[in-house]
Amino acid sequence: MSFKRRLLTLAAGAAMVPAALVAIPAGTASAHGYVSSPASRQAQCAQNTVSCGSIKWEPQSVEGPKGLMSCNGGVGRFADLNDDSKGWKVHSLGRTTTFRWTLTARHRTSTWEYFVDGAKVASFNDGGAQPGATVTHSVNLQQSGRHKILARWNVYDTANAFYACIDANIS
C-alpha cells in the first residue's frame, strides 16, 4: 500500500472516532442513598422488618424526578413504599431529630429537604458539594403526634432526586 493511501485510510479512521464516541450510550448517574436512621421504609424493607418486594435488595435506589412527594419516587416497582397500611415501624422522635443518610454512591448535591405530612420543615443547601459516605441533618420537625416524614436528596447535576419516608410519633 502506498504512503498516500495509508495516510488517507488513517485520516478516514480518525474522522470516524468522534461519531463513534457520540453513538456510545452515556452511563447512568451513580448517586444512591437512603435514610438509615431513623430507619426509613426502604431501610425497614432491607432489614426484613416489613415484607416489601424488590426494594429489599436495593434500598438506595429510590430515585425519581425532582419535586415528587411520594415515598417511592415514582418508581412503580417500589410501590410498596407508598402503602401506608403496610405495618411500618413507627419511630418515637423528639421535635428535633437527627436524620442519617447512607450513601452507597456519592453525587454532587443541590439540596436536602424534609417534609412533615407534605409541609416543608427544613432545607439544607449544599451548593453542588459532593457528600461523604454518610450525611446527617438535625431537623426541627415543628409538629407533635403521628406523622409521615418525607426526606428528599436533590442531586445537583441531574433532574433527579432520592426519596425516603419515615413514619414517626413526634413528641
Score class of each variant (00 low, 15 high):
residue 121 V to E: 02
residue 45 C to Y: 10
residue 108 R to S: 04
residue 90 V to F: 04
residue 144 S to G: 09
residue 84 D to V: 05
residue 79 A to V: 11
residue 56 K to P: 02
residue 14 A to P: 09
residue 78 F to E: 01
residue 159 A to E: 15
residue 31 A to T: 15
residue 112 W to F: 09
residue 58 E to N: 10
residue 1 M to P: 06
residue 101 W to H: 01
residue 161 A to S: 13
residue 72 N to I: 03
residue 33 G to M: 09
residue 24 I to M: 10
residue 110 S to P: 07
residue 23 A to Q: 04
residue 75 V to T: 03
residue 8 L to Q: 12
residue 159 A to D: 15
residue 162 F to N: 06
residue 149 I to Q: 00
residue 160 N to Y: 15
residue 4 K to M: 07
residue 16 M to K: 01
residue 130 Q to G: 00
residue 58 E to L: 11
residue 138 S to F: 11
residue 89 K to H: 08
residue 153 W to D: 09
residue 151 A to H: 05
residue 142 Q to M: 13
residue 39 A to M: 14
residue 143 Q to K: 15
residue 64 G to Y: 11
residue 156 Y to W: 11
residue 60 Q to N: 09
residue 91 H to A: 07
residue 156 Y to F: 10
residue 141 L to D: 05
residue 71 C to G: 02
residue 114 Y to G: 00
residue 57 W to I: 00
residue 30 S to W: 15
residue 132 G to Y: 11
residue 37 S to H: 07
residue 70 S to W: 07
residue 16 M to T: 01
residue 53 G to C: 04
residue 28 T to H: 13
residue 43 A to T: 11
residue 77 R to F: 05
residue 15 A to Y: 06
residue 151 A to E: 14
residue 82 N to W: 09
residue 141 L to N: 02
residue 8 L to V: 06
residue 141 L to R: 02
residue 10 L to R: 04
residue 155 V to A: 01
residue 20 A to Y: 11
residue 94 G to S: 15
residue 123 S to I: 13
residue 74 G to H: 12
residue 160 N to H: 14
residue 50 V to R: 00
residue 146 R to P: 04
residue 89 K to W: 11
residue 98 T to G: 02
residue 128 G to W: 11
residue 168 A to V: 14
residue 129 A to S: 13
residue 46 A to Y: 10
residue 7 L to P: 01
residue 21 L to D: 02
residue 91 H to W: 15
residue 171 S to W: 08
